[in-house]
């Protein structure tokens, strides 16, 4: 297990760093990779002193003030959504669960939209207000979706997806209504429904960081228990697992991760679905591997999607949520198709 983690984890981190440098370089102004590495190293205490600046100050400004915060934020958002997705999938034992399909993202966005509509996003507890309220509306949504979907103690895939869709359309309507009613803040609410990373700056990145770190550690520490849960709830209980406690912790922390991501970047769908799936296809069903590798994978996936979003039609920027949906929705359809095929014993 640990050998596999070191191998694939190492590979993932190399990919992550390569993508990171590439995405930093590509944009309206092309930055050479060597300059990027030097500028970044220069910022690190001790090592930095050994490097003499040979780059133009404009490059440094673009890198540090514009691209770096955006790309790091993208990585954090992607990692948060992917870890939340693997948490939901593990605890619901359902490969189609994800913050977006479960409606949790939409739920969180309603909370955010209401706050912005009334202009009170900094009341209560300052900058923490938005993520907190988003968390509460997100968890309420999750509760609603799960109780709609539950059928005699079990949660069948089909009814889970249906309940997610129902919830999403309803909540989407609320957000659209608020968008239609508001005047000055139209763009800001609209932004939440489509998702994006532009103009966020370092303050958002720093706000998200603790959520992602803590959430990741908690979910990863549940990995072994999630493996046991894959045997079925009753059997897991027979093996000494506190099933209800595990479900509660995983659902709450996954929702918190989702809400934190949504409150800085709006609704970005399918990251939490696509990433754990691809990871699972490569390394198998062990959550001890799926969770850390999904975090890396989610970061890479989001980074690339954001690169597409900001550069493919430059200077026009496509909202990030639209890019991930373009990629994710067909993938979701493919998974449904494969699921059906498996159930029918190979026939469609």
């Amino acid at each position: 297990m640990s050998k596999k983690l070191a191998g694939y984890g190492g590979l993932g981190i190399i990919l992550l760093i390569a993508s990171f440098l590439l995405c930093l370089g590509i944009g309206a102004v092309k930055l050479p990779v060597m300059d990027i590495v030097q500028i970044l190293l220069h910022r690190i205490p001790w090592i930095g002193d050994a490097i003499t600046p040979t780059w133009s100050p404009a490059f440094e400004q673009i890198l540090i003030k514009v691209r770096l915060p955006r790309i790091i934020l993208g990585m954090l958002v992607g990692a948060a959504l992917a870890v939340a997705g693997s948490g939901f999938q593990g605890v619901l034992r359902n490969p189609l669960a994800d913050p977006y399909t479960l409606g949790v993202s939409s739920g969180a966005s309603v909370g955010a939209a209401v706050l912005i509509f009334f202009g009170i996003q900094y009341s209560l507890v300052g900058a923490w207000t938005l993520p907190l309220v988003a968390f509460f509306t997100g968890i309420l949504t999750l509760w609603g979706v799960l109780s709609l979907a539950r059928d005699g103690g079990k949660i069948p895939t089909n009814s889970l997806i249906l309940s997610g869709v129902v919830m999403q359309s309803f909540l989407g309507a609320i957000v659209s209504f608020l968008t239609a009613m508001s005047k000055g803040t139209v763009n800001e609410i609209l932004f939440w429904t489509m998702g994006g990373l532009s103009f966020r700056g370092w303050s958002y990145t720093l706000m998200l960081l603790p959520y992602v770190l803590i959430g990741f550690v908690v979910i990863w520490s549940c990995a072994r228990s999630l493996n046991i849960l894959a045997l079925g709830e009753r059997q897991a209980a027979h093996m000494g697992l506190h099933v209800e406690r595990l479900k509660l912790v995983t659902l709450i922390v996954s929702t918190l991760l989702t809400a934190a991501a949504v409150s800085v970047s709006g609704v970005i769908g399918f990251v939490g679905l696509v990433t754990p799936h691809i990871v699972r296809l490569i390394i198998g069903p062990d959550y001890r591997l799926i969770i850390p590798l999904s975090a890396i994978g989610g970061a890479i996936f989001t980074m690339w999607c954001d690169l597409v979003a900001r550069s493919i039609l430059a200077p026009i920027e496509i909202p990030l949520g639209i890019v991930t949906a373009f990629l994710g929705a067909p993938f979701f359809a493919y998974l449904l198709y494969r699921n059906k095929k498996q159930r029918n014993g190979g026939k469609v």
């Binding site: 046991i228 045997l231 069903p285």
Partner: peptide
Amino acid sequence: LPAISFPVRDIIEMGRF
């Protein structure tokens, strides 16, 4: 056991949980 794709050795090891 349900039809999961864990390898046999991993499942036996789960007994040590």
